[in-house]
Amino acid sequence: MSRSGRASRSIRTLVLLTASLLLGWFIIVRVGTVDWEDVGDALAKLAAWQLVVLFGVVVVRQVLSAVPTALFVPGLGMTRAVVSDQAAMLMRVVAPPPADTAIRLTMLARWRVEPPAAVAGVVMTKVAHNTVRWSAPVIGFVLVLTDRFDSSFGAGALAGGSVAAVILVVVYLVARGRTTAGRVGLVAGRSVRTVRRSVDPEEWEAAATAFREQISGRLSTGLPRSLAALLVMLACDAAILLLSVRFVGVGADALPASEAVAAYLLVYPMTLLPIFGLGVLDASAVAIMVAYAGPELEGSLVAALFVWRTVTIGAALVLGGVAVLAGRLMPPARRDG
């Protein structure tokens, strides 16, 4: 990529991050005035052993996140998949896209994975993650529905579920056969070309066909297993947040687990934004929980989101840094059909 292209991506990411933080601030202001003394009191309740527990759940979550890579990249194995996944998460924190994809492909090349297989595996990893990401609001809606009907949760579930369904339908069409895959690529290329003239639809057609050849043998077992692992990963994500809420002193009588988890799942698609939605996701989750629990708990809930964000981002930095170093020392992957 040219220097001007990298600069453009960096500026766009910075703009998105700034907008996310400003929107987060605006949401918090609209919810109420945060009493920062309450936030400090809530954080003071946190014990060292609780941070260890949170970090432990994060580690489990990170391992589960790497399952699709292990399943879709032939011969890679779980250890290398975890290492490449942590390195990619580090890049999502410190650099604009597609730095995360670039470091994945660089590591796979170092481990002598054939480029077509590497690209197909990385694409399917993103497909699996985005399917679960957009399915999260549906799960949140179901959790809330056990107690009440909330139209905002319903709207989020409809929007998120629709995106997840489209992703799965496209993957199904690509997997049906070489001709169908080519047609899907051609149609997608023509659609994108309407807004980006540099796109060649025929190149997209060829890429879709090649992609289908790489993943067809692994799709029927790899995708269901990937989605199952990522749903457990999502449960770990929600558990980290819920534990953070409980550790700062917000009890189940004030905010039931179903409400806290549902609020997080509703805004989970915002993790697509820079640094996993830093700012706007946090503020949105707080606003939803405060709407249920009451403004008197806003300080404690802000503290909980601060703990959650610190632990998850901190783990990404630490584990990602270790992964980058470890990846350089690992031997090539075994060849596997």
Rank of each mutant, 00 (worst) to 15 (best):
A291R: 11
T179F: 03
L255S: 01
A285V: 13
T101E: 09
L54R: 01
T79M: 14
F306N: 02
F247N: 03
L273G: 00
H129P: 01
V52F: 11
F72Y: 05
A206G: 11
S152Y: 15
S151F: 11
V127R: 02
D100H: 02
L317W: 03
M91L: 11
S284I: 01
R110M: 04
F72M: 10
A238Q: 15
S20N: 02
A238S: 04
A155Q: 15
L319C: 06
G279A: 06
V302I: 01
A81V: 02
R61E: 13
L273T: 05
L90W: 07
Q214A: 09
R197N: 10
L17A: 10
V261F: 12
W134N: 08
L305N: 09
G24Q: 12
P295W: 15
G251V: 10
A207L: 13
Y268S: 00
A102H: 04
L158F: 14
E259T: 11
W49C: 03
L255A: 07
I288V: 06
S8N: 09
W25I: 15
D85V: 09
T18N: 09
L108G: 02
P96Q: 08
R218F: 10
E259G: 04
M78H: 01
P98W: 12
Q62W: 08
F276Q: 06
V170C: 10
V93G: 00
W308F: 12
L23D: 04
R196Y: 13
A285D: 13
A87M: 03
S8H: 11
P274N: 05
V318L: 14
R148E: 08
V171E: 04
G314H: 09
I28T: 07
L273N: 01
V171C: 07
R9L: 15
R148F: 10
A164I: 10
L234E: 01
G294R: 14
S84D: 00
G314Q: 09
S191E: 13
R197A: 09
V307R: 04
A157L: 13
V132D: 00
L227G: 01
R196H: 15
A304C: 10
M270S: 02
S191G: 12
V123R: 00
P274F: 07
L272M: 14
M330G: 00
G217K: 05
L329V: 11
A159H: 05
G185T: 11
L64Y: 01
V324N: 00
R328H: 11
V53D: 04
S220H: 15
A81N: 03
A254P: 06
V232I: 12
V58S: 05
R335S: 13
V290D: 01
A120F: 03
F153S: 02
S84T: 12
P97Y: 12
E298F: 12
P97T: 04
R225I: 04
A257V: 06
V59Y: 03
A66W: 05
A95Y: 06
